[in-house]
């Protein structure tokens, strides 16, 4: 039995997860930085991570009921993400690996979102919609990689919701509040709908929605924003589904928790004879368990990294990673 400790620190969440090679999640603990105002400041966020990593790791180990020395492999999110935040996870991982004399594995954060979804939903070969604060990607496995079939050309879906929520004076996290407000309205305000091939653009929609706040009730704008943005994301997912003809659709990432988005993706999935899966809420957002599990898969197939190869990769794309554990 191999046990892996995974550290996640790409953005606002510092998380530790303990997972064994049977795919059992033994412990996972998150600590999320919430700025008093504005968006994420990378340095302030990394300071938060520095302040809490020790207790987060200890709590995860306690949850798993094991001691630190029982860890066989250390995995960390190597990218993509905010440089200062990634550096915290990488440094802690390097120190722990050296201290315990165990292998260290660098994991791609986006790959980890896909892998934890496959594990948690018991689905082998899905088309994946990964929607979070930093990413909006439709991908599927082909030719040894998670190929990207569609993605945002500017900002991410979660970023759109967060930025709109801030402008509307809603407290963090904005997504659930926008969802609740949207349920109170059925009045649609016309907003720009931008799908380019299999890609989409959301920044024009954000500007228009913020401007609409001056003339319309918040609930109407929230409803229109959700309907427009989710329709675009769903259309792109449907295009990729028609193209790849996959039999399963998996929704993962922080925004996967949105009920309206799930409803839309479920509808297109059923329309194309595919089964719909949403990653359980606890594992949908950034977490250390997904890093630990993906780290284990990687470790079993290609082994660990040498220290000089543990540099962070803030711009690491999902489709740059060879997926050696799948054929």
């Amino acid at each position: 039995m191999t046990i892996c400790l995974g550290l996640e620190s790409t953005a606002h969440t510092l998380s530790a997860g303990v997972v064994n090679d049977a795919g059992r999640i033994l412990g996972v603990v998150n600590d999320t930085y919430v700025p008093d105002e504005g968006g994420l400041h990378p340095l302030k966020t990394s300071n938060h991570h520095v302040g809490c990593f020790q207790s987060v790791i200890q709590q995860a180990l306690d949850q798993a009921g094991i001691a630190l020395k029982a860890i066989d492999v250390i995995a960390f999110s190597q990218g993509p993400g905010l440089g200062p935040c990634l550096r915290v996870g990488a440094n802690v991982a390097r120190a722990l690996a050296a201290f315990l004399s165990v292998p260290i594995v660098g994991v791609n954060h986006c790959v980890a979102h896909v892998e934890i979804g496959r594990l948690a939903c018991k689905v082998d070969d899905p088309l994946t919609l990964y929607v979070s604060g930093g990413n909006t990607i439709v991908s599927a496995f082909d030719c040894g990689r998670y190929q990207v079939f569609g993605e945002t050309l500017d900002i991410a879906l979660g970023n759109l919701l967060d930025a709109f929520a801030r402008e509307a004076g809603l407290q963090h996290p904005g997504g659930p509040k926008i969802e609740a407000l949207a349920r109170e309205s059925t009045t649609y305000i016309e907003l720009p709908y931008t799908v380019k091939g299999m890609d989409l653009a959301l920044s024009g929609l954000l500007t228009s929605a913020i401007n609409a706040l001056r003339r319309h009730p918040l609930a109407d704008v929230a409803f229109s924003l959700q309907e427009t943005a989710f329709s675009m994301v769903t259309e792109v997912t449907e295009r990729a589904l028609a193209h790849t003809e996959k039999k399963d659709v998996l929704v993962t990432g922080g925004v996967a928790a949105n009920g309206r988005l799930q409803e839309m993706i479920r509808l297109v999935s059923e329309d194309h004879g595919a089964s719909f899966h949403a990653v359980p809420r606890a594992l949908a957002g950034d977490n250390g368990a997904m890093i630990a599990w993906t780290g284990l898969l990687q470790f079993k197939h290609v082994g660990g990294l040498t220290m000089e190869n543990t540099s962070i990769l803030p711009k690491w794309r999902l489709d740059q990673v060879p997926i050696t554990w799948r054929s």
Binding site: Y188, F230, S231
Partner: peptide
């Protein structure tokens, strides 16, 4: 018609 899109968006598109 796309069942996932509200008619206001769907009809227009």
């Amino acid at each position: 018609r796309k069942a996932y899109r509200i008619p206001q968006i769907d009809d227009k598109i």
